[in-house]
C-alpha cells in the first residue's frame, strides 16, 4: 500500500495533472444489429454499448401501462481484468447495472413509450478504472444514436483522493490504492445529478471539492460526447429534403 501515486513533480502515474482526463475517444453507430450503439476508449478502459428498443416488453408481465421499462446490464468480459473474471454476473455487476440504469433513466422520456422496453447492454472489454462512468457516458450516446427522445445527454466521471490530493478520472491503480473514489453522473445542460456514489474517507469540505471537480470533469466529457455526435452525424446534416 506504500506505492506512491503522485510523482515528485506533482504528476500522476500516467503523467496526468490532478484535474486532467485521460484521452477519451467515443465512436457512434458501431453495431449493425443494435438500434443504437457506441464504443469508447477511455484511457485503457474499453467499453461497447448496444441499445435495443423501445420494443414490446417480453415477458409481457414486465410491461408498465404508463411508461417504458428501462433495463441495463453492465457486464465485464472474462478477459477484461488481470485475473480472469467468471462470466456469471457478480454482485458488483448487478449493483452497477442498477445504478447505471438509474443514472440514465432520468434523461429518457419513458412516458412516451408505455408498455415497451429499452434494453441497454454495456460490455466492458477492458477495465482500467471508472468503468461505470465510461459505461454511462457511452450509453448516453448509444441512446441518442437509437433516436430515443431524451431530456439531455448524461456525462459521468469519477474523482478520487490519492496521497491527499483530489484527482479527476480515476484509473484502476488509483481506485485500488487511493483513499476515496466518487463516481458522479449528471445531465450537463440541466445541471442535475443522476448518479453519486462514494467510498473512502472525506470531510464534508473535501467532499464538496470532489463534487466541484467531478462537475468540471463531466462538462469536459460532455464536450467530447457532443464532438463525437457531431462528427458522426455531420454528413447526414447536409441532407436536403
Amino acid at each position: 500500500m506504500d506505492k506512491k501515486l503522485i510523482t515528485e513533480d506533482g504528476r500522476r502515474l500516467d503523467g496526468r495533472r490532478f484535474d486532467e482526463l485521460r484521452p477519451i475517444k467515443f465512436q457512434i453507430g458501431v453495431l449493425k444489429n443494435a438500434d443504437g450503439s457506441a464504443y469508447v476508449e477511455w484511457g485503457r478502459t474499453k467499453i461497447l454499448v448496444g441499445v435495443f428498443g423501445p420494443r414490446e416488453s417480453h415477458p409481457k408481465h414486465l410491461a408498465m401501462p404508463d411508461r417504458c421499462l428501462i433495463r441495463a446490464r453492465y457486464h465485464m468480459a472474462p478477459f477484461s481484468v488481470e485475473e480472469r473474471k467468471s462470466p456469471a454476473p457478480s454482485r458488483r455487476e448487478i449493483e452497477l447495472s442498477k445504478v447505471i440504469r438509474e443514472a440514465l433513466e432520468p434523461a429518457i422520456f419513458v412516458e412516451l413509450f408505455p408498455r415497451t422496453t429499452i434494453d441497454i447492454f454495456a460490455e466492458v472489454l477492458q477495465a482500467d478504472g471508472s468503468t461505470r462512468c465510461a459505461a454511462i457516458s457511452t450509453a448516453a450516446l448509444a441512446l441518442a444514436d437509437a433516436g430515443i427522445p431524451m431530456r439531455d445527454l448524461v456525462s459521468s466521471v469519477a474523482v478520487a483522493k490519492v496521497d491527499g490530493n483530489l484527482v479527476l478520472d480515476v484509473m484502476d491503480i488509483e481506485d485500488k490504492l487511493g483513499d476515496s473514489d466518487m463516481p458522479l453522473a449528471m445531465m450537463p445542460s440541466k445541471n442535475l445529478i443522476t448518479l453519486i456514489q462514494m467510498d473512502g474517507l472525506l470531510t464534508n469540505e473535501e467532499f464538496a471539492k470532489s463534487v466541484e471537480l467531478a462537475k468540471k470533469g463531466c462538462m469536459e466529457v460532455y464536450a467530447k460526447q457532443k464532438e463525437a455526435l457531431d462528427s458522426h452525424f455531420r454528413i447526414a446534416s447536409k441532407e436536403e429534403v
Partner: peptide
C-alpha cells in the same frame, strides 16, 4: 468523515440538494 455514499432511484439531485 464521510465514508460511503449511494444515490438510489431514478430521480435527480441538484448540486445544492446534494450538499
Amino acid at each position: 468523515k464521510i465514508c460511503a455514499m449511494q444515490k438510489g432511484g431514478v430521480g435527480t439531485l441538484s448540486f445544492e440538494e446534494l450538499l
